[in-house]
Simulated scan of single mutants.
Amino acid sequence: MILAVTGGKGGVGKTTVALNLAHAIDGVAVDADLGMADLPEGRGPDLHDVLAGRAAPLEAVDESGPVDLLPCGRTLAGARAADPTALVDAVAAVERRYGDVVIDCPAGMSADAGLPLLAADACLLVAAPDAFALPDAIRTRALARVLDAAIERVVLNRAGASPPTGRVRDALGIPVETIPDAAVVDRARQSGRPVAAVAPDSPVADRFRSLAAVVGPDGR
């Protein structure tokens, strides 16, 4: 299964959701943000190298951490040399070897943001839990529909005590899940690890496991 984690703008927590879901389903997290990579860096070739034809996709998967990663490079030269249209085949190769893949998509509505949706079997739409984020989420839903990418859930990240789940569900017509705002999420992100590797018994780790049970391969 290939699951894309997308969103209408940066800063909503797509990378956090992607990394934690990949850990929960024992899959590979792919950093497909060619210009602004955010998943932890690897120790060898990266997605820039793969898309430039300098490395095979499986060579670039880093298995040294708590989550298997296909990281992306962080240089402008690497981004310019990469052929984004090769992404679909690269992700398919990783899926054939590892079984499950979670793609951390670029933010926005560019062509680069659409390509991971073409590769995916399904996607999650991550949004901030406020009214200002809703128009971006609606535009992202429209892009996913054009590309025939099924949005399984909207995830309101860093949600407070009273997230607008009903309003978002009514506006988008998609079931809504929430990830609470908690200090352990920041601690895990700063260490480049999933929450379950930092605080396995925390409510946030349980929430990510519950989300994975719904949208992961066993829940579809």
Rank of each mutant, 00 (worst) to 15 (best):
P163M: 10
G78Y: 07
R74T: 13
D148T: 09
A32G: 07
A183T: 13
A171Q: 06
A159E: 04
I174Q: 09
R97T: 11
A18F: 09
Y98P: 05
D38W: 00
A197H: 05
S162K: 11
P40Q: 06
I174P: 09
R220P: 12
T15H: 07
D130W: 00
V146H: 12
D206G: 10
R193D: 06
A161N: 02
M109L: 15
G216Q: 00
A150F: 11
L125Y: 02
S64F: 08
V67F: 05
A128Y: 01
R145I: 04
A197N: 04
G99A: 06
E95R: 15
L34W: 06
A137D: 10
D89C: 02
L172W: 03
A92Y: 06
V91Q: 07
S191E: 14
L58E: 12
S202E: 10
R139L: 09
L172A: 03
A60G: 08
I151W: 06
D49I: 09
D89K: 14
C123M: 08
G166V: 12
V61W: 08
V176N: 07
I2E: 00
A196T: 04
D121E: 13
V215W: 08
L39R: 06
S64Q: 11
D136N: 13
C123L: 07
C105V: 03
R209F: 01
A60F: 07
L21T: 02
D31A: 10
S110Y: 02
A127H: 04
E41F: 04
D62T: 10
L3D: 00
A60L: 07
L19H: 12
A159N: 02
V67S: 04
V50Y: 04
I179V: 15
A113N: 00
D186I: 10
P200G: 14
P200Y: 12
S210T: 14
A199H: 07
D206C: 00
L3H: 01
V101P: 00
V61C: 12
I2F: 03
I103L: 01
G44V: 11
L58N: 09
L172R: 01
E59T: 11
G108H: 03
V195G: 10
R167W: 02
A197F: 05
D68T: 13
V204C: 07
E63K: 10
D46L: 03
R74Q: 10
A120I: 03
P164Q: 03
L70P: 04
L172D: 02
A107I: 02
